[in-house]
Write a protein that binds this DNA or RNA. Structure first.
Length: 1312
RNA sequence: AGGGCUAUAGCUCAGUUGGUUAGAGCGCUACACUGAUAAUGUAGAGGUCGACAGUUCAAAUCUGUCUAGCCCUACCA
């Protein structure tokens, strides 16, 4: 039997199928059954588990899942190794927030290792939520063995890659990994550089008002500049604007736009009244020189006048200015090199004339563009040399001028860096203003005014940032720019514009990758250097590091080599817990290389830290912990008081009953993370009289009663143990040792431990690690290698899985993961990292607004999936808009998907199951009726089905899931349900099982089966449910015979391949005619209020060409049945009834006629039957338009017929339908008979008779129905399964209205 | 500021290399059907295709400028 269902409830299907997948390991089987040689490689972009999963994660993971499942169905082995991104600033920030500390407190209030531990814990905070959403949404990814970026193995692979870059040389013999400095946002108050991420935090960009200054730079007279001088004593100056006057002492150049037109203006200096000639961009003149002042007489000008006369003397190009020298504006510091190559005019493409003067004041240490311009043009840096000969900027790291800037020495460059009370002083003046005033006094300022602009601030100190030169390690990505762009062109981007635009344009302007981060929680840069920086070493593996440490031990810089110390051994029995612990502590200290720390007491600081930590933890329970707490809180569990997140000396228990000394642990973290530590901790607790009971997340969430039962048993055991003990254990717990939050045994490659490693240089000097961490994006870009711990392990595996065939992430990853994958692959392996990439758009709310917690418009994915089911949610997301378009998420859309697609498919299946069960039909794979023995309708839907299969494959191969889903949707709704099933209904319920009926079942079965397969990638639950229902009755047979339907799950089957032999386009065209003709006929009936049950005599079809008639003839029975008409008659030209009209075919004629098109179209519209016939017969016709003569052919016309006079007609395009609407008494009677059948059927249904029940029908003897009953007696009986049909004068039946005039009583009862 | 995406019916979206009257679904209104029935069908109303200019016989489609929304990048002085 096929299962039948009352209603569609997708969440129940989800649950049923999830259970089945789990029980039968379907995901694993779907991967394992495919050959490894036939791999389709997918890379999972790792999510960070320190944030909760949102609805936007559901869409990106749906996209990934769809293509992985599709390729699996096509026979590929698609392994999907999951992963976790664990490093990075957001995690540091969250830890700091939870602990209530700032970066300054690291190393003071808490140790760096405590901080490190807290990061480890925090990073997996929501892992169980992620696991849960992964499962519930049906995303198949292997989470049993994920890659985790904080693991030593992962870090080691990153190091290996870094070393490869370190050793790789450019054509100029430069290393791909180098130390340099760039201009970066820097917060003097916090003493640290800031990332763009930090600058983009809300509230960081703020409008501030600064003193802007237009300074006058005096041009030196020399050959090149001679053209500027019209008089010998002329004072020619170039104007340059700045919003940061404090950078003016550091000015070394001016930059002009080569293509910009500049002007020399003769005027007077506004502050001193001295005559002067000024150079600035011509476009900027109006900003400084009001038009009306051009007319003022120079002789009349007096110093102090507001309106200053001016004359534009000459104009010239920026290129004319390039190379000119000027006098240093504020000559505090200079050098011979500067005198030679500095203080001159440079060209710069980026110069605009939108504001300022069209000349950019250039101070290389305080502007990235400035630095670039100076480097490109060989302008030396300005500053004070330190003892190593490096040139330091004129502003120190605290943000103050150095002593050499005598007038302003020691002054903070920004007013905000002074304490508030200093700023509040009456005569306080910002340094910017002081500088401006000095320039004014010296006749070097042209204009000083306040200027409001948006400027970034440090999120921690709230003070403005400086752009400041900082040391950093870089990857020389610019050297691989061309190769990256070239290889990028081989990648299939969806959408293409992201690859060529957003990504491609960016690659073309690629800068070196700044790898350095001054942080704690990340992959340490594996470079050690001597203090004099003359010797350095890049480490590429732990083994290499260990060898280097051995040398360092020999040289006496290290006491021992932590990498060669065996891991601590478990304690032997027989000694006290405290002793054991102490011993382990020693071992561990030695291992981790931080010996000598006095941490044998729980000091107050540490205790406070733990308390704060658990307090924070309580606010962020995992959902399993939350569930557990719901069961235990408030003494509701057998009146036992439980505490959660309770610190027991140095350890934190998830839940504890102090009364019964029972600790309850829930494994919320990655299980294998710290097995040694867990063991150690358990022993500790047990030694002090505690018992520990552990549960997993899924136990707590899915098997609560069993969990509580076990817990109760444990309590009983503890009760007895405690009662038997002479006295409850009061032994003091061993005191803490600084690892309560958890530490993996073995050496941890993170800071601070790694920083304790000191190596020895070839010349015997100590080398210390460069303190930087690397950009976390390097972590994620390394995943193709690091996930397999390549090249230290899995070399073969890696080879098979590189590069990826397919990846998908949000479009925001373009310059993130997409880039780092690409960059590392190109630079290290001269390869792409992925061949196809889908970058999906954002998920917005239904009003198109970005979802954010503050707006309260975030959608909870768990609730959505619980309510509508995963499939409806997935289907909606994919079918509604292309993945790369932004999705306006609206729950109504999910409802629509559910009703329209799943509802229709469900109904179709249910229909099939209902009748198949009645007829005892079971699909028999060995006995399938050949298509040529099936009806036109059957062959048509099969043809449509295989057209769908072809379209589907094309779309999926092209990474167009939306097109694929819409094609399926259209097939199911439009063709399968609304045409095939509707027209075939009668075949299923009428008569005995014969060939036609069998054909109907087999056809419908095949359609459902294939549709299930095609939908499986996008709707994995429903598709499997459908497949399993369809195949359950024959599963055993199929397995025995080894036939295609033997598989337990649709996800294990082989996808139906396109098969052109099953597609019959001519048949599809015929059926299209039928559908359109029916639609037209029904619309006539509707217009003339002729019910479909009322048969009509005749339908007329004008025939415009011979093939049309042949085509329609083939589907004639379907048409007649559908519209309830008795005959179909064709009208040809010969009938004389046809009135044709013609329209121009614009497409063909337009090319020929060009601008005469319009006139010709008018002429053609006037054609009559004869003209059209003449053209059709002759095959061509001369047409004269506007004096020109053209030859037109029949293809140039679109011929249609006009209404037939005296007939009810309707037309659609070239098809016209006329209906004979004469209702004869016979037709009337037949119509009534059908009405009667209908009413009787309704009664059967009302009375809940079985579909197969035989009945006796009694009709009231109403005069109106007599002819119908008389003539259609047998018909009525047959249709209603009546054994008897009798008339009675009076009866106790159902009162039924037959039509407006006729009402009568009808009785139907089951015949005995 | 630069780069990119988007803009078509009340809503969500199609619209192939420019070509006749710009389509679909939902929603709304009316009607029909009734052995799929909390299903289905038919019809109607609803559009200056974001704005302006250009190319063309012909533009939702190609080009340019602009506007709005969003994303990424960014101290332009």
């Amino acid at each position: 039997m096929y299962r039948e269902f009352k209603h569609l409830h997708l969440p129940s299907i989800d649950a049923e199928i999830l259970q089945f997948w789990d029980d039968e390991q379907i995901f694993k089987k779907s991967v394992d059954q495919r050959p490894a040689e036939n791999a389709f490689v997918f890379y999972e972009g790792p999510p960070s588990a320190n944030g909760k999963p949102g609805i936007h994660h559901v869409i990106s993971r749906t996209v990934k899942d769809i293509f992985c499942r599709y390729q699996t169905l096509k026979g590929h082995r698609v392994e999907r190794k999951g992963g976790w991104d664990t490093h990075g600033l957001p995690i540091e920030l969250q830890v700091e927030k939870e602990l209530g500390i700032t970066k300054e407190d690291i190393g003071k209030k808490i140790t760096v290792e405590e901080y490190n531990q807290a990061c480890r814990t925090t990073v997996m905070r929501f892992k169980d939520l992620w696991d849960d959403i992964t499962r519930k949404m049906g995303y198949w990814v292997d989470l049993d063995d994920p890659y985790i970026t904080f693991k030593n193995e992962y870090i080691e692979s990153c190091w290996w890659l870094l070393k490869r870059l370190y050793e790789k040389r450019t054509a100029n013999d430069e290393s791909f990994l180098y130390k340099g400095f760039t201009i970066q946002p820097y917060s003097p108050a916090a003493g640290t550089g800031l990332s763009t991420h930090e600058l983009n935090m809300p509230g960081c960009y703020r409008d501030v008002t600064d003193f802007s200054t237009v300074a006058m730079f005096k041009v030196k007279r020399e050959d090149k500049s001679d053209f500027l001088f019209d008089a010998n004593d002329e004072d020619v100056r170039i104007l340059a604007w700045t919003t940061t006057p404090w950078t003016l002492p550091s000015n070394v150049a001016l930059t002009v736009g080569p293509g910009i037109t500049y002007a020399k203006v003769r005027t007077f200096s506004p502050y001193t009244g001295a005559p002067v000639s000024l150079v600035l961009a011509k476009d900027r003149l109006p900003a400084y020189f009001p038009e009306e002042n051009a007319a003022l007489a120079f002789e009349d000008y007096k110093e102090g006048d507001k309106n200053i006369p001016f004359r534009v003397e000459k104009t010239f190009q920026g290129t004319d200015l390039v190379g000119l020298h000027f006098e240093q504006l504020m000559p505090y510091v200079s050098s011979p090199e500067l005198e030679k190559d500095g203080f001159r005019v440079l060209p710069g493409d980026w110069v605009t004339t939108e504001d300022g003067t069209g000349v950019v004041h250039t101070a290389p240490y305080f502007g990235a563009d400035d630095m670039r311009a100076c480097k490109e043009n060989g302008v030396p840096m300005i500053g004070v040399p330190d003892d190593k000969g490096r040139i330091l900027p004129l502003v120190d790291k605290q943000g103050r001028f150095v002593p050499e800037v005598t007038d302003f020495a020691g002054r903070y460059v920004k007013a905000e860096y002074y304490p508030a009370e200093v700023q509040a002083e009456k005569d306080f003046k910002p340094t910017d203003l002081l500088i401006a005033l000095k320039l004014k006094d010296e006749n070097k300022a042209f204009r000083i005014e306040k200027y409001k602009h948006s400027y970034p601030h440090c999120w921690r100190t709230d003070k403005p940032v400086l752009y400041y030169p900082l040391d950093s390690w870089f990857i020389r990505a610019s050297a691989a720019r061309e190769r990256m762009a070239e290889l990028n062109k081989t990648i299939n981007w969806k959408p293409a514009s992201t690859g060529s635009g957003r990504f491609g344009v960016w690659l073309e302007n690629l800068q070196d990758w700044n790898l350095s981060r001054s942080r704690y929680w990340g992959v340490p840069l594996p470079i050690w250097r001597t203090e004099d920086e003359n010797e350095e070493l890049c480490i590429g593996s732990i083994e290499q590091l260990s060898q280097e440490v051995n040398k360092a031990v020999a040289a006496g810089f290290m006491s021992e080599n932590p990498f060669s110390t065996p891991p601590p051994t478990p304690p032997q029995g027989g000694r006290g817990a405290v002793e054991q612990a102490a011993e382990r502590r020693d071992a561990k200290s030695a291992v981790s290389g931080y010996s000598g720390r006095p941490s044998f007491k729980t000091d107050p600081e540490r205790w406070k830290f733990l308390k704060d930590y658990v307090r924070a933890n309580r606010k962020n329970p995992t959902s399993a912990e939350k569930d557990m707490w719901e069961a235990l809180r408030d003494k509701q569990f057998h009146d036992i008081k439980f505490r959660r997140q309770h610190a027991i000396e140095d350890f934190i228990a998830d839940f504890v009953s102090l009364e019964y000394r029972l600790v309850v642990e829930i494994d919320g973290d990655i299980h294998d993370l710290q097995p040694e530590y867990d063991k150690y901790r358990m022993e500790f607790l047990e030694a002090s009289g505690y018992s520990v009971i552990r549960f997993t997340n899924s136990e707590v969430q899915n098997e609560r009663p069993a969990v509580l039962k076990k817990l109760w048993q444990a309590i009983q055991v503890q009760k007895n143990t405690l009662a038997q003990a002479e006295s409850p254990s009061t032994a003091p717990l061993p005191l803490g040792e600084g690892s309560g939050v958890g530490l993996k045994t073995g050496f941890d490659l993170h800071r601070p431990y790694i920083d304790d490693i000191i190596l020895v240089s070839p010349s015997g000097k100590p080398m210390r690690r460069e303190l930087d961490l690397i950009d976390v994006w390097f972590d994620s870009g390394s995943m193709p290698y690091a996930q397999w711990h390549y090249p230290f392990e899995n070399q073969e595996k890696w080879k098979q899985n590189y590069p990826a065939d397919f990846i998908a992430e949000g479009v925001d990853q373009t310059r993130g993961w997409f880039y780092t994958l690409h960059a590392i692959a190109v630079m290290c392996f001269d390869s792409v990292a992925y061949k196809n990439v889908v970058s999906n758009g954002l998920v917005l709310d239904k009003n198109g607004e970005k979802m954010s917690k503050s707006k309260g418009n975030v959608v909870n994915p768990f609730e959505t999936i619980d309510e509508y089911g995963a499939d409806a949610t997935r289907w909606y997301m994919i079918s509604n808009a292309a993945p790369w378009d932004n999705l306006k998420f609206d729950e109504n859309g999910i409802v629509e998907s559910r009703n329209k697609f799943f509802g229709t498919l469900f109904n179709t299946y249910n229909f099939f199951a209902l009748y198949a069960n009645l007829d005892g039909f079971k699909m028999d794979e060995s006995n399938v009726l050949p298509y040529n023995k099936r009806s036109e309708l059957d062959r048509w839907i099969i043809s449509k089905l295989y057209s769908l299969v072809a379209d589907y494959h094309a779309a999926m191969n092209d990474y167009e899931p939306t097109k694929a889903c819409r094609a399926i949707e259209n097939f199911v709704d439009e063709h399968l349900s609304n045409w095939y099933v509707r027209l075939s209904r009668r075949r299923f319920w009428k008569g005995e099982m014969g060939e036609d009926k069998l054909a109907a079942y087999q056809t419908l079965f095949e359609c459902l089966m294939v549709v299930g397969q095609l939908s499986a990638p996008a709707a994995p639950f429903f598709a499997d449910w459908l497949y399993r229902n369809l195949t359950a009755p024959i599963k055993a047979t199929a397995k025995a015979n080894n036939t295609p339907l033997q598989h337990d799950s649709v996800h294990l089957t082989d996808l139906t391949q396109p098969d052109p032999s099953k597609v019959d386009k001519a048949l599809e065209k015929r059926m299209d005619h039928a559908q359109r003709i029916c639609s037209l006929a029904l619309s006539i009936r509707k217009k003339d209020k002729l019910r479909v049950r009322l048969p009509l005599q005749k339908i007329l079809l004008p025939v415009l060409d011979g093939t049309f008639q042949v085509e329609v003839e083939a589907v004639k029975p379907l048409i007649l049945a559908e519209i309830n008409v008795k005959e179909l008659e064709y009208i040809t030209d010969a009938s004389g009834l046809l009135k044709k009209s013609a329209k121009a075919n614009f497409k063909t004629l337009g090319a020929k006629l060009g601008k005469d098109m319009k006139a010709a179209a008018a002429q053609i519209a006037e054609f009559n039957n004869d003209q059209i016939a003449a053209l059709e017969q002759a095959g061509s016709l001369a047409l004269s338009v506007n004096g020109a003569s053209y030859t037109i052919t029949p293809e140039d016309l679109v011929v249609s017929t006009e209404d037939l006079p005296g007939w009810a007609t309707a037309s659609d395009g070239t098809i016209t339908v006329a209906l004979d609407v004469t209702v004869t008494p016979e037709l009337q009677a037949e119509g009534l008979a059908r009405d009667l059948v209908n009413r009787i059927q309704n009664i059967r249904k009302d009375k809940d008779f079985n579909v197969t029940d035989r009945v006796v029908v009694t009709l009231e003897r109403h005069p109106a129905i007599l002819p119908a009953v008389e003539q259609f007696h047998d018909y009525i009986k047959g249709e209603t399964l009546a054994t008897d049909l009798v008339l009675a004068d009076a009866l106790d039946g159902e009162k039924v209205e037959l039509n407006d005039e006729v009402a009568l009583s009808i009785d139907a009862r089951i015949s005995l």
